[in-house]
Computed example of a mutant assay.
Amino acid sequence: MHSRQEQHTAQADRFQSGDSAPSAVCALPAGLPLSTDVLLAGRNAVTIVHQGVHYVLRATRSGKLILTK
């Protein structure tokens, strides 16, 4: 059996940066930490949609995260 995080990583790896992912790739229990390795899936930025607004979460070379609208 694979863990939920491994399943999420495998699903996230299927999507390239220009593809649109389903609104719910996988269901994670509330409060479960989500690694940026899983969230970014090897990219330096991802687009997040929150209440219809698009945000970009970007990892800097120094390892910091920047969220912009």
Rank of each mutant, 00 (worst) to 15 (best):
R4D: 14
D13F: 02
D37H: 12
T47R: 09
T68H: 01
H50W: 05
G42P: 12
A24S: 09
P22Q: 12
M1D: 13
L65H: 08
A27T: 09
H8N: 06
A10Q: 10
V49I: 10
V49A: 03
I66A: 05
Q16N: 11
A21P: 12
S23T: 14
R14G: 11
D37I: 06
A59M: 15
G42A: 03
I66K: 12
E6I: 11
Q7S: 13
L65P: 01
G52P: 07
S3T: 15
D13E: 08
Q16Y: 03
G42E: 09
T68G: 04
Q11K: 15
N44T: 14
R43Y: 09
A41W: 00
Q5S: 13
V46W: 03
N44D: 11
H50N: 05
K64C: 02
V46I: 14
L67H: 05
F15P: 01
D19W: 07
G18R: 12
S35P: 06
G52M: 04
L28Q: 06
G42M: 12
L57E: 00
Y55C: 06
M1E: 14
S20L: 10
L65S: 04
M1P: 11
A12D: 01
R61A: 11
Q11P: 00
S23W: 06
V46C: 06
L57W: 08
V46Q: 10
T36I: 08
T36S: 04
T36Q: 10
I66C: 08
A27R: 11
R14L: 05
V46P: 09
G42D: 11
P29S: 12
S17K: 13
R14Y: 01
T60V: 03
V38E: 07
V25R: 11
R4K: 15
M1G: 15
H54E: 14
G42Q: 04
L28E: 10
V49T: 15
N44H: 10
F15C: 07
L65K: 02
L32V: 08
V38D: 13
L65E: 03
L39N: 04
G63K: 10
H2M: 13
C26A: 09
T68S: 14
R4M: 13
Q16R: 15
A21D: 00
G31Y: 09
P33D: 05
V25W: 03
G42N: 13
P33T: 09
G42S: 08
L39I: 05
P33F: 07
G18V: 02
T68F: 00
K64H: 04
A59E: 14
D19H: 14
Q51D: 12
E6G: 05
S20W: 05
A45H: 12
L39Q: 01
E6M: 10
V46Y: 01
A41P: 01
A27P: 03
S3P: 08
L32P: 00
V25E: 05
V49Y: 01
C26N: 07
P33H: 05
Q5C: 02
L34A: 06
G52N: 06
A30R: 15
A45C: 02
F15H: 09
S17N: 04
K64E: 09
H8P: 00
H8T: 11
L40M: 11
S17Y: 06
V56M: 10
V38L: 13
G42F: 05
